[in-house]
Simulated assay, not measured.
Amino acid sequence: MRCQVLLLAVLLLGSLGLAGYIHNNRKEELKLAKHASFQNVKHRVTRDVLKEYLTHVVESSSLLDKTKKQIEELKVDVAGVEQVAKAKKAEEDACSGDLKRITDEGAAIDTDKTNTDGEFQKKKADLQEQIATLKKEAEQQSKVCNYIKKDSIDGQKLCGTENKGEMKKAEPEEGVNKENTYVERSA
């Protein structure tokens, strides 16, 4: 009987040990199953995120290609516009040069006009002074008239002492017109 009890104790201890071992293994298996499930979900999420990134990379790449094409087109357009701008700048420079030349010529003409106007005003003033002096001299009786006979027709004409009636008679007789008389007086 002792053997049987011992056998029974060994069997009971072995059964308990085996039950503990199975329980431990089952716990470990559940833990590993949870871990594997978590890793599987993590792997799927990572794969989905990677697919999204790859989609974004493809879209970004196509957008980059389109942008590069647009940049090339714009470079061609800019080169054309720069050539037109250079041509317009050359025209502007030419026009500015012409404008400066015309402005300088206008200023020179204005200066000449001002100088000419000044000279004209001086000469006009001199001539008006001479005219006034000559009119004054013409109105004054000459000193020669003191020595000329007052009854001679030529003396009366020169000195202006003649009668109006006698002058009218003298003009038709001699055939002398007023212009000649005036010319003789002013001379």
Rank of each mutant, 00 (worst) to 15 (best):
E82R: 10
E28V: 04
E174I: 11
G160R: 03
K113S: 11
G160F: 01
E105Q: 12
E59W: 04
K136I: 03
D48M: 01
V10K: 06
K88W: 00
D126N: 07
E59F: 12
E174W: 13
E162L: 14
A85T: 11
T116F: 06
K164R: 12
K143Q: 14
Q121S: 12
H43F: 14
R26E: 09
N40T: 09
K75N: 09
I148L: 02
R185V: 09
A125C: 01
K149N: 13
T116G: 02
D65W: 04
R2G: 14
A36C: 01
L11Y: 05
I71A: 01
G80K: 03
L54D: 13
Q4I: 03
S62Y: 15
A170L: 12
K168S: 12
A94N: 13
E179A: 07
T116Y: 10
K68C: 03
H23R: 06
K31N: 13
A108M: 03
C95G: 06
E29Q: 11
I22R: 10
K122M: 09
Y21D: 03
G155D: 00
K157I: 15
C145G: 08
D104G: 10
T133Q: 13
E137K: 08
A33H: 00
R2S: 14
E28S: 03
R47C: 02
E92Y: 15
S96R: 05
N163E: 08
E72Q: 08
E72I: 08
M1G: 05
K143R: 09
T55M: 05
K150I: 08
L50K: 02
L18R: 05
K31L: 14
K113I: 15
T133R: 10
E171T: 12
N25S: 09
K113P: 08
V10M: 09
D112Q: 15
K135V: 06
Q121G: 05
E72A: 08
K136R: 04
N115L: 07
E179D: 09
K34V: 13
K150C: 05
Q156E: 00
L134T: 07
G17R: 00
V76F: 00
D65Y: 10
Q156F: 00
D48G: 02
E73L: 14
Y21T: 11
R185T: 04
D151N: 11
K86N: 07
R2K: 11
L12A: 07
T67I: 08
E171P: 12
K31M: 13
G106D: 01
V57K: 02
N40E: 10
N180L: 15
V176F: 01
L6N: 06
R26K: 10
L64Y: 14
I109D: 02
K157L: 15
V183H: 09
K68I: 15
L12I: 12
Q4S: 01
A107Q: 11
V84K: 12
N25F: 03
C3D: 13
A170M: 12
H56S: 15
